[in-house]
């Protein structure tokens, strides 16, 4: 168990340093910092998704369910009980993990086809959308966070503070990924992904390790959920949004299963392109970025299942060193 090679940590430190000066480079333009923060939070989501999708090979289509549940629990605790998100985010993460356990426990049973997990997670977002839409739950209107600012609420007048909080979470998520990747769990998960039957035959408790991956992933998303709501400004039943949920899985696949660097690159790149397209021609051709996601997904799936990570490996070979785990 460890973080892998020292090179991994150096690369991470360089990336974090670059990310840390972005608000300065953008001249503290609030709109651009909001965009950067949105891209970065999606990088957190996609890197967390890499644990269940990349290492364990389970196509989880419910990121927004965990993000929504965690975030809304945290926000409601703050709103109605005055509990600071610093505590609430842990409770939100716990709620997401409980939900994930309820989904994973029956579907990770041995011999159940992967399709049911994908289907159940896809429908989970729809179910939560329908349930929270009921007037007894959230109803059909937008809910606002308390109109207060400060570190106690994690709501700020300017976006750079939240950007740095997300950057901290980003570092934590990458470190958790590295820890898993270089641990026994990581090797077990990859074995399960390659051949579940053989892994089971070798004595790996497949269900236990899949659940471990799922709970880690759901916990990170539930924890980050509140920050997503802060960036969005509001929450409602529409927080449980299927296309957004799918797009997180798509970014993970396009990045390359099991590759942290690929997940990071594809999230930052695709999210930025998405926001750009939404801002420019989004009104005339709605859903253009989703169309692009769809085409990318087909191309990657058919021709290059290794995703963007294949590009990195090619560069590494050219440069002359091979690197594992990042």
């Amino acid at each position: 168990m460890g973080l892998g090679t020292r090179r991994n940590l150096i690369v991470l430190a360089i990336i974090v340093a670059v990310l840390a000066i972005i608000p300065f480079a953008l001249g503290f333009n609030q709109y651009y910092i909001l965009l950067a923060a949105t891209s970065l939070i999606f990088a957190v989501f996609v890197i967390a998704w890499n644990i269940i999708g990349g290492y364990a090979g389970q196509l989880d289509l419910a990121p927004m369910a965990y993000i929504g549940v965690g975030g809304i629990v945290t926000a409601e605790l703050l709103k109605y009980y005055g509990i600071t998100p610093w505590v609430g985010m842990f409770i939100g993460a716990g709620a997401s993990m409980a939900l994930a356990a309820a989904v994973g426990y029956p579907t990770f049973r041995f011999g159940i086809k992967e399709v049911w997990y994908a289907l159940l997670t896809a429908s989970l977002v729809v179910i939560l959308n329908n349930i929270t839409h009921l007037p007894q739950v959230l109803g059909s209107f937008d809910h606002y966070l308390p109109a207060k600012t400060g570190w106690y609420y994690l709501i700020f007048y300017r976006y750079q503070n939240i950007y740095y909080v997300i950057l901290g979470l980003f570092v934590a998520t990458v470190l958790i990924n590295l820890l898993i990747s270089n641990s026994k769990t990581g090797y077990y998960l990859r074995a399960i992904r390659e051949d579940e039957l053989a892994a089971e035959a070798l004595g790996i408790d497949v269900r236990k390790y899949k659940l471990k991956a799922l709970l880690t992933y759901a916990g990170i998303l539930g924890f980050t959920g509140y920050l997503y709501i802060v960036l969005q400004g509001t929450y409602s039943y529409q927080t449980f949004n299927s296309p957004t949920s799918l797009s997180i899985a798509i970014m993970g696949i396009v990045g390359g299963l099991g590759s942290i660097a690929g997940a990071f690159t594809s999230a930052m790149f695709l999210k930025t392109v998405e926001e750009y397209l939404r801002g420019t021609i989004g009104a005339t051709i709605p859903g253009l970025y989703l169309l692009i996601y769809g085409i990318l997904l087909i191309i990657v799936g058919i021709f290059k299942p290794e995703g963007i990570a294949a590009l990195f490996n090619w560069v590494k070979k050219k440069v002359g060193f091979e690197n594992r785990g990042m």
């Binding site: 196509l59 994908a118 798509i250 299963l257 859903g287 997904l297 087909i298 799936g301 058919i302």
Partner: peptide
């Protein structure tokens, strides 16, 4: 692998939908 199959057909669905 199932994940790739689902991914490609989800992509196809996205394309048709949009």
């Amino acid at each position: 692998e199932p994940l790739i199959q689902i991914a490609v057909t989800v992509g196809l669905g996205f394309v048709l939908q949009n």
